[in-house]
Nucleic acid binder design. Structure first.
Lengths: 198, 198
DNA sequence: CCTACCGATCGGTAGG
DNA sequence: CCTACCGATCGGTAGG
C-alpha cells in the first residue's frame, strides 16, 4: 500500500471531475460536455481528465451515475421511512424542491439528458432510460401503497410525474418560478381525488 | 429577371436543407446538427449549405421556423374552425397524433430543442421559448373559450400540456407507445372534470 | 498526473 | 452552387 495519499488524491480528483461534469451536462448536455473544457475549468491537463475514464462514453456513464447518487440523496433519502400517502407526498414535494432549488443549474439533470439521448442508441441512453424507469416505478409503487387508493396507480403516477416534469421544463425555459405553483396545485388536486372516500 | 430558374432551384434547395435539418435536430439536437453532415447527406458542398444561411445560428433559427410551420400544418390547422370544447379536444388529439406518428423521428421537435436550449442564452433559445409560450397560450385560450368551464383555464392548460409532453418524452425514451393511452385517459378525465355541471 | 502529438471534424472565408 | 483553404477544437494515443 502506498502511504503518500496518491490514490486518495486520485479519487478526490475524480469526484471533482464528475461533480463539474454533472453541472455542465445539465446546461450543455452530455455531448456538449468536452474533456478539454473540463480540463480547462478544473485546471488540470486534458489527458489528466481522460486518464480517469478511458473514453468519452465512460465519462458520460460515470457522470450519469454521479448525478443519480445526487438525485437519491436529495429526493429519495429525505422521504425516509414514511409510508402510505405521506411517503408519496414527500417524494413529490422533494422532487419539486430539488428542481426548484437548482441543485443542477440547468434544472433536473435527468430531464436534460433524457431529451438529449431519447432518440439515440447505446449504453448512455440505456442507463438514462433505466434511471427513468426506476423513478416512475418508485412513484407507482408509492401510489399503490396508499391505503384505499381510488385510482389506478400507474395512471396516477403518469399524471403526477407529468406535473413535475413540466414544472421543471417551463421554469428553466421561461425563468418562471410560478409554474411550480401550478404543479403543486395539480399534485394536491390529483392526490385529493385519489384519496377521496367513495 | 433571370428566366433560367436559378432562383427557384435555390429556394427548393433551401427547403430541402431545412426539412432535413429539422429531422436531424429532433434526434441529435440543434447543436449536433452540423453543416458538414447536412452537406454530405444532401450531396452538396459544405459551402453550398453555408451560403444559404451565413452562420450556424441563422441555420438553427431557420430550422426552428421551418419546424414551426410543420407544427402549425399538422396540429393547429386541422383544428379548423371548431369552437368551444370541440376545438380544445381537436388541438389536444392533434398534438398526440402528431407526436405518435413521428412527424419528426425524434418525437416532437420542440420538446427536443427546448430541453437542449432551455438553460442557454441567445436568439435560438428566445425563438424556442416564444414558440412554447404561443402554444401554451393557445391551449389556455381554447380552454377559456369552453362554455361554463369549471376550472381555471391556466391551471387546466398546465395539466393538459403536461400529459402531452410526458407521453412524447416517455414513448421516445422507452420505445413504448402505451404511454399515449395514459395521456389520452388523463386528458379525457381532466376535460370531464372541467365540464361537469356543478 | 504531465507534454506532445495524431487524424478528423467543426464553423467559417476567399475567390470564383 | 463549386474547390480549396483557415484556425480551433474534438476524442484519443504515446511515452513518461
Amino acid at each position: 500500500m502506498k502511504v503518500d495519499g496518491r490514490v486518495e488524491r486520485g479519487e478526490q480528483t475524480r469526484r471533482q471531475i464528475l461533480r463539474r461534469a454533472a453541472v455542465i451536462a445539465s446546461v450543455e448536455g452530455l455531448e456538449g460536455l468536452s474533456i478539454g473544457r473540463l480540463a480547462t475549468e478544473l485546471e488540470i491537463s486534458k489527458s489528466g481528465v481522460f486518464a480517469h475514464f478511458g473514453s468519452k462514453e465512460e465519462l458520460q456513464l460515470a457522470t450519469v451515475r454521479a448525478a443519480a447518487r445526487i438525485f437519491v440523496d436529495e429526493v429519495i433519502t429525505p422521504a425516509g421511512a414514511a409510508t402510505g400517502l405521506a411517503r408519496l407526498e414527500r417524494l413529490l414535494d422533494g422532487w419539486l424542491a430539488y428542481s426548484e432549488r437548482r441543485t443542477f443549474p440547468g434544472g433536473c439533470f435527468f430531464y436534460s439528458v433524457q431529451a438529449e439521448f431519447d432518440a439515440r442508441t447505446g449504453r448512455v441512453r440505456d442507463s438514462i432510460a433505466e434511471f427513468d424507469r426506476g423513478w416512475v416505478e418508485l412513484i407507482r409503487t408509492a401510489a399503490a401503497d396508499v391505503p384505499d387508493l381510488a385510482a389506478d396507480p400507474a395512471q396516477l403516477a403518469f399524471e403526477l410525474v407529468a406535473y413535475l416534469q413540466l414544472a421543471n421544463a417551463r421554469s428553466v425555459l421561461h425563468d418562471d418560478p410560478d409554474v411550480y405553483a401550478h404543479a403543486r396545485a395539480a399534485v394536491r388536486a390529483a392526490l385529493d381525488r385519489a384519496t377521496r372516500r367513495a
